[in-house]
Simulated assay, not measured.
Amino acid sequence: MATSRTSRGGRRAPAGPAWDEVELAPIVLIRAGEELLADRAVSRLQAQARRRDPATEVTIVQAATYEAHQLDTLVSPSLFGEPKLVLIPALEQMTDALLTDLLAYVPAPAPDVTVILRHNGGQRGKRLLDALAKSPYPVCTIQAVKSPKDKAALVSADVRRAGRRMEPDAVGALVDALGNDLRELCAAAEQLISDTQGTITVDIVNTYYAGRFEATGFTVADAAAAGNVAQAVTALRHALATGTDPVPIVAALAMKIRQLARVAAMGGRRGMTARDLGMAPWQADRARRELAGWSDDALAVAIQAVARADAEVKGASRDPVYAVERAVITICDARRGRVPGRSS
């Protein structure tokens, strides 16, 4: 049985191969918590099959319309003996007939056949999933990529895989600009690799994607953390005008203030690592720089402002736009030393 692995970020990774390590086997199960990486895993396996034998016959089976004993036909030897690959891309939609046939197939799979099963979530087929977990066949469990830290790690890995280097701050800038859409983020990294040479810098990212920064909550948060009222309010109004909802803007503000508070609580600029902080190195370095000028009282005011805005944009106020604008101004004032009850 496979044992669990520890990821680079210190988080316990699931048992089984990662999406970029999975290899062909008679049966491969991909548990797809992240659509993009599951697509990559399937493509990797199909490419391996074609390299092994370009004549490999590929069949895609729709689990929702499967009829009894179809699998028997699909895995039976072909007339000319070509290897076969059977892909079931939405196993969670399986009919009872498919569940029955696969449970019978797992103990004795056919030779010269690879069956790739992709399960995209839910409890449907739990008996089969449990049986495969106990089998000798690989189970590739792909976790969702949600945090900026994980997105930055994915971009960095893609760049390294291409034999290139990207500055940590450049990775952070790209995640800030495009991190809301993982496919777009990875496509942007691929474009930068294709269109540039040498180390990918912050200036290069800004050249390609500067326009995207203006419409994100992260730009608002960066300006607010710096105490730049004019820039923060301008970025906020532009973000709202281009369709950004107040909720993710407040989420970006909350993430920024939490990072500053975490660095401050760990001793400011010394005696800590990014892992200690639960942050990516570029995030920790930026937070250390941004912490200059912030007092404990100011951080407390900012935390309260964000908490209030979070409640208001989620229904506690009739005017979420005003709520987020007030939070931005309060954070800027706190950074500039204008803490209520204390002299400037």
Rank of each mutant, 00 (worst) to 15 (best):
A300D: 15
A170L: 14
G217R: 01
N228F: 00
E167S: 15
A307R: 07
P107M: 06
V58M: 10
H69L: 09
Q48P: 12
Q197C: 01
D222A: 11
G337T: 03
P83Q: 14
W282L: 00
E190R: 15
S317I: 11
V247K: 08
R40Y: 10
R270E: 13
E312C: 08
E325T: 06
L71F: 07
R44T: 10
H119I: 05
R258P: 08
P54Y: 04
A226G: 08
R275N: 10
P107N: 07
V159M: 14
A153K: 11
R258C: 03
D96F: 03
R237V: 00
V324N: 02
R288H: 01
A254Y: 05
I303T: 12
K256M: 10
V145R: 01
L91Y: 09
R52Y: 02
A307T: 06
D181I: 04
K126W: 00
Q62D: 15
A241Y: 08
A144D: 05
P89S: 01
A264K: 14
L91E: 08
R308V: 08
S317Q: 12
V233T: 04
L129K: 03
R183G: 13
G10D: 11
M94Q: 03
Q48T: 11
L291F: 05
T141Q: 13
D39R: 15
D181H: 11
V75E: 04
P138M: 10
G16K: 09
E67L: 10
V324F: 05
L37C: 07
